[in-house]
Simulated assay, not measured.
Amino acid sequence: MSLLERVVIEFKKKFPDVKLEIVEKGSQDIIDDVNQDKSDLGLIILFKNRLIERTGLAFERLLPVHMVAGISSASPLALKPAVGPEELRQQTVVLYNDDYVKWYMDDFQSLYGPVDVLFTTNNRDLIFRACMNHGAVTIGLNFSFMNEPAFRKDNIAILDFDLPDHGPVYLGVIQRKEKTHSQVSRRFMEWLKHDLEELGASMQS
């Protein structure tokens, strides 16, 4: 949600009469809402097991993303350049309740064996406290740790995984193919793309 903060505020200043409603849901719920015309557009993660073309929706790639691990900066694991399979299996893991995160962890366990998952939640503060106070590791997409006040570099170390590549994964927007989108909707997309391009550049720097 932090990705949308700036673009929503600035967009509302430019178009004060536009009513915006932002809802955070699982990807399948977002797909269903857009398909049923309950939402104008949706932001989801596209990966190899999610075939958007079967939904009848158009998907536009906005930002390449990848999985990372977050752990307290005081942990010895934080000194490593990357996290390997056995290292992760030795940790207590807390997960954000997200379709792709759950798919990734299920795939990981099918390849490397069981992981001690303490809990799954959509409460970021609870995840942060588990990492800081109890030495837990959380995993998530790299962009999800950016602009989150709790996950500052002096608190949480963000490490890549030393794992085979799962193939390209993208954050993107879905819309109904046959729908004629309003000028305001198109302008919002332009603003969102601009912000994500800036984010992508900062992630690579």
Score class of each variant (00 low, 15 high):
157 A>E: 05
198 E>M: 05
163 L>C: 00
154 D>P: 00
178 E>W: 10
181 H>F: 09
198 E>R: 14
182 S>V: 08
164 P>C: 11
177 K>A: 05
196 L>F: 05
186 R>Y: 01
181 H>K: 15
141 L>N: 09
186 R>H: 04
193 K>Q: 05
170 Y>S: 06
137 V>N: 13
190 E>Q: 01
188 F>M: 05
191 W>H: 11
187 R>W: 03
167 G>C: 04
152 R>F: 03
154 D>E: 06
169 V>Y: 07
171 L>Y: 13
139 I>A: 11
140 G>T: 12
159 L>N: 04
164 P>D: 08
167 G>V: 02
167 G>A: 13
161 F>V: 02
160 D>I: 04
185 S>P: 00
184 V>T: 08
187 R>P: 01
179 K>V: 06
160 D>Y: 09
147 N>I: 01
196 L>Y: 15
145 F>M: 02
148 E>K: 11
180 T>S: 12
174 I>L: 08
150 A>Y: 12
151 F>E: 08
146 M>Y: 14
185 S>N: 11
162 D>G: 04
191 W>R: 04
166 H>I: 11
198 E>T: 09
146 M>S: 05
159 L>G: 08
141 L>H: 06
199 L>C: 09
194 H>D: 11
155 N>Q: 13
146 M>A: 10
183 Q>L: 01
160 D>N: 12
178 E>S: 11
161 F>I: 01
151 F>I: 08
151 F>K: 07
167 G>F: 13
169 V>G: 07
180 T>E: 08
191 W>Q: 00
188 F>Q: 11
185 S>F: 14
174 I>V: 11
144 S>A: 15
171 L>K: 12
197 E>L: 04
189 M>W: 03
189 M>I: 01
172 G>E: 02
180 T>D: 08
156 I>Q: 06
198 E>I: 07
158 I>G: 02
171 L>C: 08
171 L>E: 07
153 K>W: 03
195 D>Q: 04
166 H>V: 03
166 H>Q: 12
162 D>N: 15
145 F>E: 02
157 A>H: 14
199 L>S: 00
183 Q>P: 02
162 D>Y: 10
140 G>L: 14
184 V>N: 10
155 N>L: 13
178 E>Q: 13
181 H>W: 10
182 S>A: 05
149 P>D: 04
145 F>W: 14
164 P>F: 14
163 L>V: 01
197 E>R: 12
154 D>H: 07
156 I>E: 07
159 L>M: 06
175 Q>T: 13
146 M>E: 09
170 Y>D: 05
169 V>Q: 14
177 K>V: 07
199 L>T: 14
174 I>D: 09
158 I>A: 02
162 D>R: 15
193 K>V: 00
147 N>H: 04
160 D>W: 03
159 L>Y: 09
168 P>Y: 13
147 N>L: 09
186 R>M: 10
139 I>H: 05
172 G>Y: 05
172 G>A: 10
195 D>A: 13
149 P>Y: 11
161 F>L: 13
